Simulated assay, not measured.
Amino acid sequence: MSTATVEAAKPLSPLAVRLNEHLKAQTPTGAPTLADRCDSCPQPARSVFMFSVAPDPDGTGAEAGGVYLCAHHIRRHIGALIGDRALLSFWVEPVELSHFDGVDAPRHNAHKSGDGLTDA
């Protein structure tokens, strides 16, 4: 029996199913900018999770707040974040989801062909 047959028979986790569904509908409009940083460390943000928040008593009118995470913190906390009932939406760099079993995301390819500058 080949490895592909064994993997095909393995059921997907609920997290993998949800992430696959999300990737099909994800658009680049929610992506963090180059200036956005992880809320837990100084690394660049690779995801944004938007949550509904309670009305501010000071009257600022904010109804949502974002959590920005780097690649390391995505892998550490994504299960808890997307399971939160207050989650409104989220955007995750697709290549970062390739670390999860069963998620149909492109893998990062660090190998360059040719001279490494032109792919020639």
Rank of each mutant, 00 (worst) to 15 (best):
A25D: 11
D36W: 05
H73Y: 00
N109F: 12
F49Q: 02
I78F: 04
F100Y: 03
P42D: 04
M1Q: 09
C70N: 03
K112V: 11
H77W: 07
H72R: 13
T29E: 15
P106K: 08
V103E: 01
V92Y: 06
T3N: 14
R46E: 14
D84A: 11
L69M: 07
M50E: 15
T27V: 08
D39G: 09
G66H: 10
Y68N: 07
D104N: 15
R85S: 14
I82H: 03
F90Q: 09
H77Q: 13
S2P: 13
R85K: 11
S89I: 05
T60W: 10
T29Q: 13
G114L: 01
A8P: 01
A35W: 03
G61M: 05
T27E: 10
D104Q: 12
A4L: 12
E63M: 08
F51A: 02
G116A: 02
H22T: 08
A86H: 11
V92T: 04
A8L: 07
H22L: 06
D84E: 14
A25S: 13
V67Q: 07
L23V: 06
S40F: 08
D119T: 07
I82N: 04
A110E: 13
V6D: 07
D36T: 06
A71T: 10
A62S: 11
G61L: 02
A16E: 04
F51V: 00
P14A: 10
K10A: 11
G66K: 14
D39M: 04
R76L: 15
H111Q: 15
Y68M: 08
N109A: 14
I74S: 01
D119S: 13
L19W: 05
H111Y: 14
G102P: 08
P55I: 07
L12R: 11
G83A: 07
L87N: 03
S13Y: 01
R46D: 09
G79K: 01
V53T: 08
P11L: 08
T27S: 13
H99M: 11
L97N: 03
N109E: 15
E96A: 03
P42S: 05
S89W: 11
H99W: 10
L97C: 01
A54R: 07
Q43S: 15
A105K: 02
V53K: 00
A86C: 09
D119N: 13
G83Y: 06
G30D: 06
E96K: 11
I78H: 09
F51P: 01
P11T: 09
G79T: 04
P94R: 01
V95M: 14
C38W: 02
V67E: 05
V95A: 15
L19R: 03
N20H: 09
D36L: 02
L97I: 03
R85C: 06
H77I: 01
S47G: 01
P14K: 10
V92F: 05
S98K: 05
G65R: 14
V95F: 08
N20W: 05
I78K: 04
L117P: 04
L69F: 02
E21H: 10
S89N: 12
A110T: 14
L15F: 08
F100S: 01
G66Q: 13
A35I: 03
L97P: 02
G102L: 08
P11G: 09
A86K: 15
V6Y: 11
A64K: 13
